[in-house]
Structure formats: structure tokens, C-alpha cells
Nucleic acid binder design. Structure first.
Lengths: 216, 216
DNA sequence: TAGATTGTTAATCGATTAACAATC
DNA sequence: TAGATTGTTAATCGATTAACAATC
């Protein structure tokens, strides 16, 4: 491995997303030209040293007495995370969840560009989702041949997920975002991010159990 | 802090969920009476010592030469996470995402029992979601008065989320599962788990940027 | 018995936090 | 200048991994 750019840890990436929230979405401090590491740290219940180190890691330097430039930090984080790139993505599954994802306007701000929506159910074919029309999954190959597709979002029932994953991988897509509550088996070159609902639920359920009175 | 039971770390809870997947859902090894820590470790790309320590933490002892009893470990994890409890929950938001959550059969296996679905949009009132009918949010207080509600799942657009959170908290619900892509301000006694799509997206976007050719 | 696997202690590693000099 | 805040090194803390005796 002779790559010059070290791969950033997931934990850092996650913290960067939180910083971005604070910097752009969460607080009316948006408008402030500078912010201090202590300020962000307090909002996120973190140590301020961590903030400074993380910002240094993405190439942002602060100014003693003033803090960090909001605009500069925001753009550096966005660039680091790749939110300024255009990620061409397809959505497989036009059910409730697929509909929710297709309807979410926020994706555009993160660089996601939908180039196709697919579903196995022929009743759904032709249905409009914004600009796009639901197509049979069999058309995936044609779509993928025309333009490189970077990401496939899988929002189908568990029973269909592995089959969909196979087809998507065969079509040459190497990054998968899996919303089906099951693990997918894919070749090692393929990257899968699972959005398993049970992880969050496990945490919540434990919390509910702990605070139950009388104990469940 | 004189509580006898130490609060388990989130990281442990998350690992437990993964073990449960492997043990019940993921592999046909379901049927095996025993499993070894090395086996689970290999499937999850982890160190086997970690598995043994985690199982010990939830009170499961293994048997030298044999491993751990599948059934015993599974039930211990489920009990630890509270999946054997009945968590009475309401769902606020009957849009795409709310529909996806209401339709997900898996929740029953995690102890979630829906006791009400609410939406601000009067066009949706009366719509059936399985056994339940969408009600106006104003009826929340009545529903909450009849039976204690443990959890409120918030699946409304960003703009409405804070308002919904306020009402839910006023109705006496102290645990929130927030699917709206924004942070909620709540009293400190209220526990919020955020399911922010941007966290997963940040990781994926970074990965896509790294593997982009030509670089985005 | 020999051998596979656990349980646990010790060692390592990495992440977090504290301290403080440098800066404007 | 005094004071607030960064940048960075050192210290602490906790999590991970290695080692190995105990067990069946």
C-alpha cells in the first residue's frame, strides 16, 4: 500500500457529519463568520481538542483568538466527505421505503443524483417518482451500459435483497446501500453499507428495558 | 451511582445485535446446537476473544471443547437487549417512511407493539395501516392517557419534527426514535435516538470519492 | 490421554483528554 | 500588553489482542 492519502476512519467520518450538521443545519450560528472548537464541542458534548484535531485532519487551520472560519470548515468537510461530487445512483424497490428515499429532497445536497428507479413488480412499472419512472429490473443492464452508476440503493423486502444484489453487482455497480434487514453476500471488491434497523432498535429496546417501571 | 447493574456501552449493544443476526437470521447454522466464538468471529471479521467477553458480559458461559449453546446465547442476548419485553409504541407520520415502518413485520419480533398511528394531514385520517387507523395528532393525549406509551417513532418531514416532538413529550412519552433528518431539542429526561441518513451517506460518499476514477 | 475450546490475565494498541506553549 | 484560542505534545484511559492455563 503506497497510497499517499491515508484512509480516514469511520469514526472520524461520522464526527465530520455531525460537525457539518452543527455548522450548516442545526444552529442559527450559521451566520457567524467564526466558530470556536469549544462551541462545537459543547453542542455535541465532546472534548474541544477532538474538534481541533479533526479539523486539522481535513486541512482546516484555525486562527488564535478568533476560531475557525465557518465557511472554510464547512466546505473542507463537504469536500472530504465527497458531498461536492456527483454520485450517480439507482434505487431498487419502489415500495414504501423506496418512495420515502425517492421523495427525500436532501440527497441532492449530498451529491446523490438518481438515474433510475427499478422494481420487480410490473404493477409499479411506469409509475412516476418525481422526474423518474419505475422500470423493470431487467432494464438495469441497459441503463448501466449507458452511464456508469456509482451506487445502488437496495430498498426491497428481505426475501428479494440477495437476488437484487446479485443483479446489481453483475451490472457492474460496486457500492451498495442496503436497507433490507438482512446481510448480503457479495464479492470482496464490492462495498456494502448496511442500514439495519435492528441496530438502532437494539439500543432503544435496551434503554426502554432499563427505564421500565415495573421492569418489563 | 449505587445501581447494581452497570449500564452497557452502546458499542457492546451494537455487537450484541450483530451476534443475534448471525445466530438467528443470517446463517443456516441456526440449527447447530453449539457454536464457537471463533466461528462467529470469522463471520463478523472480529477477534474471538471479544465474542467470549461479550457473551460473558450477558451471563452466557461456554463449554470447553463444545462452544456456546446457540439457544442459550440467543435468548440471553434477546433478554439483555429487551427484545422479550413489550414496548408499546406510536408512530407519528403516515407518509412514505411511516408506511414503510408500519409495514415492517420484523418489529413484532423485537417487542414493538404499535398502539397508534398519527398524522397531521386530515386526508390521511381513517386510512388503515394493518390493524390500525391513522388518527389526528390531537388525539394523542387521549390515547396516551389510556395506556402508557413507551416509545414514539417520528417519521414526519423536518419542518414538522420539532413540533411533533414537543407534543409527544407533553403527552408523557420519554423515548423518541427520530427519523427526520434534523436534531430535536427535548428536556434532558427524554431519550432520543436519531436515525440520521446523512451518517451512512457520509461514509458512502467518502468511499465513492476515494474509489472514483477519474477522481470526482 | 490428547486436543479443542473456553475464561482470564497481561500486553499492546489506539483514542481521548490534559497540559501548555505559540499565536494574534 | 493581556487574554482568548489554537496547535501539539505528553499523559491517561479504555478497548483490543495476545498468551496461556483451565476445562471437558
Amino acid at each position: 500500500m503506497t497510497s499517499g492519502v491515508p484512509k480516514l476512519k469511520h469514526s472520524l467520518l461520522e464526527r465530520l457529519v455531525h460537525y457539518l450538521h452543527v455548522l450548516v443545519e442545526r444552529h442559527p450560528d450559521n451566520e457567524r463568520e467564526y466558530f470556536s472548537s469549544a462551541h462545537v464541542a459543547a453542542l455535541l458534548h465532546m472534548d474541544d481538542t477532538q474538534i481541533r484535531k479533526d479539523l486539522a485532519a481535513v486541512g482546516v487551520r484555525g486562527y488564535p483568538r478568533l476560531g475557525f472560519r465557518t465557511l472554510e470548515a464547512r466546505e473542507a468537510i463537504r469536500r472530504t466527505l465527497g458531498f461536492n461530487c456527483r454520485h450517480r445512483a439507482i434505487l431498487v424497490g419502489a415500495g414504501h421505503l423506496g418512495g420515502a428515499l425517492a421523495a427525500y429532497k436532501g440527497f441532492a445536497g449530498y451529491g446523490i443524483q438518481w438515474v433510475g428507479i427499478f422494481d420487480a413488480d410490473s404493477d409499479k412499472h411506469g409509475t412516476r417518482f418525481g422526474r423518474l419512472v419505475v422500470q423493470p429490473l431487467s432494464r438495469l443492464h441497459n441503463v448501466a451500459r449507458k452511464r456508469e452508476i456509482h451506487l445502488a440503493v437496495i430498498a426491497v423486502p428481505s426475501g428479494a435483497a440477495q437476488d437484487v444484489a446479485n443483479q446489481v453487482v453483475t451490472a457492474g455497480i460496486n457500492t451498495l446501500w442496503n436497507f433490507a434487514p438482512m446481510s448480503l453476500v457479495v464479492p470482496s471488491r464490492v462495498y456494502v453499507r448496511n442500514e439495519h434497523i435492528s441496530v438502532g432498535l437494539g439500543e432503544l429496546s435496551y434503554h426502554l428495558k432499563q427505564s421500565a417501571d415495573p421492569p418489563c
